[in-house]
């Protein structure tokens, strides 16, 4: 492997001293396969309607296995969420999950993922938005779904993402004097000393 990508090199624990190893042994790197996408009928219908309904918001519609994925710029997020909830054609009234994925090593960005479900139309989707590594901040969706409250506090604890407009963004799962963001990839897993 002559042109190893930086992220691949960092992940490779056995080859930490890459410079000194003569002629790197060709590691068996299995070809990465992508999971097949099979959208159900209501998902297909949703993916068709979304670009038109959210035309003003620079969205990008994709899919992951059986869910529609909608990428939204961070500053449009709350408007998009509110429209997805209030528009009778979508009516996403249930926030299933809110989470952050750390892609700092790959792209220098965090990804915030919202899993939505509609009790009326029985369809589901993911809304995603990307935040920069330095001072990641985004508007809170607690005004749209109150259930986002603790999810956002937890993600603030673990990843240091700021949710602007959150009513009470204080530590939830970590002690209030905790230093660091243990959810991030660069936070060591076992960095304790025996006493």
């Amino acid at each position: 492997m002559t042109s190893r990508e930086p992220s691949g090199g960092e992940n490779n624990l056995s080859n930490s001293g890459a410079k000194s190893t003569p002629a790197p042994v060709k590691r068996r790197e299995p070809e990465v396969q992508r999971a097949a996408v099979v959208l159900p009928p209501e998902g297909l219908a949703l993916a068709e309607r979304l670009p038109e309904a959210l035309a003003t918001h620079e969205i990008e519609v994709g899919a992951a296995i059986d869910e529609v994925v909608c990428r939204v710029p961070a500053d449009h997020l709350v408007d998009v969420c509110r429209q997805l909830k209030d528009d009778p054609a979508f009516r996403f009234d249930y926030l299933r999950l809110l989470t952050v994925v750390d892609y700092v090593e790959q792209d220098g960005e965090f990804e915030v993922v919202y899993h939505l479900y509609s009790m009326t139309h029985h369809h589901k989707m993911m809304v995603k938005t990307r935040l920069p590594e330095r001072r990641p901040s985004i508007s809170s969706v607690t005004g749209v779904w109150r259930g986002a409250d603790w999810y956002e506090r937890e993600m603030h604890d673990l990843f240091g993402v700021e949710f602007n407009g959150h009513p009470n963004l204080v530590p939830l799962v970590l002690p209030s004097d905790f230093d660091g963001f243990p959810g991030r990839k660069n936070y060591p897993l076992n960095d304790y000393e025996e006493w």
Binding site: P30, V32, Q33, R34, A35, A64, I65, E67, V69, R96, L97, H115, M126
Partner: peptide, 11 residues
């Protein structure tokens, strides 16, 4: 188990 790359939500 070595699943393919992708994202999944199961519940």
């Amino acid at each position: 188990a070595r699943p393919p790359a992708g994202e999944v939500y199961a519940h």
